[in-house]
Lab assay of single mutants.
Amino acid sequence: QLNLPENTDDWTKEDVNQWLESHKIDQKHREILTEQDVNGAVLKWLKKEHLVDMGITHGPAIQIEELFKELRK
Rank of each mutant, 00 (worst) to 15 (best):
D53M: 10
K28Q: 11
R30C: 11
P60M: 15
E70S: 10
Q36G: 14
L2E: 11
D37K: 15
V38I: 12
L20S: 00
N39Y: 02
E14M: 04
V16K: 00
H23F: 12
A61P: 05
V38M: 10
V42I: 02
E14G: 06
Q18C: 11
W19C: 02
Q36K: 14
W11E: 01
S22V: 07
V16E: 01
H50R: 15
M54N: 04
K24V: 09
G55V: 14
L2N: 03
D26G: 05
W11Y: 11
L51H: 03
K44F: 05
L2M: 10
T8L: 14
D37M: 14
L67G: 14
V52D: 12
L20P: 00
M54Q: 03
A61E: 10
N3R: 00
I62W: 14
Q27Y: 13
A61S: 03
K13W: 05
W45N: 15
V42T: 14
H23T: 08
V52M: 13
N7A: 11
T34F: 03
L43H: 00
N17E: 09
Q36E: 09
H29W: 10
M54Y: 14
V42D: 15
M54D: 04
K28T: 11
W11Q: 00
R30V: 04
I32W: 04
F68A: 12
E35V: 04
E14N: 10
N3T: 04
N7I: 03
G40H: 07
K47H: 02
P5N: 09
L20F: 02
I32L: 07
R30P: 01
D37L: 15
E70W: 04
L20A: 03
E70L: 07
T12D: 08
D53W: 01
D9V: 05
G40M: 10
K24C: 12
E14S: 04
V52Q: 14
K44T: 12
L43T: 13
W19H: 04
E21F: 05
Q27F: 11
V42L: 14
L33Y: 03
L43Q: 03
K69E: 14
W45S: 15
N17F: 11
D10P: 00
K69G: 13
K13S: 09
P5W: 00
E21P: 01
G40S: 01
T34D: 06
T8Q: 06
T8D: 04
K69Q: 13
M54K: 13
P5F: 05
E35D: 07
L33G: 02
P60V: 14
S22E: 05
W11S: 01
V52E: 15
L4H: 05
P60W: 14
D37T: 12
W19Y: 11
I25A: 03
N39D: 11
I25G: 01
F68N: 12
L33R: 00
G40P: 06
G40W: 01
L43C: 13
Q18A: 07
P5A: 01
V42Y: 15
N17T: 10
K69R: 11
N3Y: 05
W11I: 10
I25H: 05
K24A: 12
V42E: 15
K28P: 12
Q18F: 09
S22L: 05
K47R: 10
E6L: 04
S22H: 08
V38D: 04
T34G: 12
N17I: 02
I25S: 01
N3I: 03
D15E: 09
Q1A: 03
N3F: 04
W11D: 00
N39S: 06
V16W: 03
I62N: 15
M54S: 06
D10T: 08
L2T: 09
K28H: 12
Q18N: 03
Q18Y: 10
A41H: 14
D10H: 10
E70N: 11
E21H: 10
I62E: 15
V16S: 00
Q1C: 02
H23S: 10
D9H: 03
G59V: 14
D26S: 08
H29P: 12
I25P: 01
D37A: 14
L33T: 01
T57I: 14
N39C: 03
I62F: 15
Q27D: 11
D26L: 02
W45M: 15
K44Y: 05
W19N: 00
K24D: 11
V38P: 02
E35C: 04
V16F: 06
H29F: 05
V42C: 14
K28R: 06
T34L: 07
I25Q: 05
A41Q: 13
N17G: 06
N39Q: 10
S22N: 07
N17K: 12
V52W: 14
D10Y: 12
E35N: 04
N7E: 08
I62Y: 15
F68W: 10
H23L: 11
K13E: 06
E21R: 04
V38T: 12
Q1G: 07
N7W: 04
E31Q: 09
K28A: 08
W45T: 15
W45G: 15
E35L: 06
Q36T: 13
V16I: 09
F68D: 07
N7Q: 07
H23K: 12
M54T: 05
M54P: 03
P60T: 15
Q1S: 10
T34N: 12
I62C: 14
H23V: 12
E6H: 02
A41C: 11
H29C: 13
W11P: 01
F68T: 08
V38A: 11
L67D: 14
M54C: 05
T8I: 13
W11H: 00
A41G: 10
F68R: 08
N39R: 06
G59M: 14
Q27T: 06
D9C: 10
E70K: 11
L51A: 04
E21A: 07
K28E: 13
D9R: 07
H23M: 12
L2F: 01
I32T: 06
K69V: 13
R30K: 02
K69A: 12
K28V: 10
T12G: 05
H23I: 14
I25M: 06
W45C: 15
K13T: 08
T12N: 12
R30I: 11
V38C: 06
V16C: 06
L51W: 01
N3M: 06
L20T: 01
N39I: 01
D15Q: 03
L46T: 08
E35P: 01
Q27K: 05
M54G: 03
L2H: 10
G59N: 15
V52R: 10
T34P: 01
D26M: 10
A41W: 15
G40Y: 01
N17A: 10
V16T: 01
L67W: 14
K69S: 12
L46F: 12
Q27S: 11
L2Y: 03
A61K: 03
D9I: 10
E21D: 08
L20M: 05
L43W: 02
I62T: 15
N17S: 06
V38Y: 12
D10Q: 05
E35Y: 10
N7D: 06
W19D: 00
Q1R: 04
I25E: 03
A61M: 06
V16Q: 00
L51I: 01
T34R: 08
I62M: 14
V38N: 01
I62P: 03
R30Y: 00
E31H: 08
W19V: 03
N7F: 06
T12Q: 06
P60H: 15
L46M: 11
V38R: 01
L4W: 01
P60E: 15
V38W: 02
F68S: 11
E31A: 08
H29A: 14
P5K: 05
E14P: 00
E6N: 12
G40A: 02
K44R: 07
E31K: 07
R30H: 02
M54V: 08
N3D: 04
Q18L: 09
W11C: 01
D53T: 10
N17H: 10
Q36R: 15
H23G: 01
Q18E: 12
D53N: 09
N17L: 10
K24T: 09
N39A: 04
E21G: 06
K44W: 09
E21I: 13
K24E: 13
D53Y: 10
D53R: 14
K28I: 12
P5Q: 05
Q27I: 03
H23Y: 08
D53E: 10
P60C: 15
V16Y: 02
T12Y: 00
V38Q: 04
K28C: 07
E35T: 05
G55D: 00
K69Y: 13
L51M: 08
D53V: 08
Q36Y: 13
H23N: 03
G55S: 00
S22T: 07
L2W: 07
K13L: 08
E6I: 05
E14Q: 06
D10K: 08
I25F: 14
N17P: 00
D53F: 03
K13Q: 09
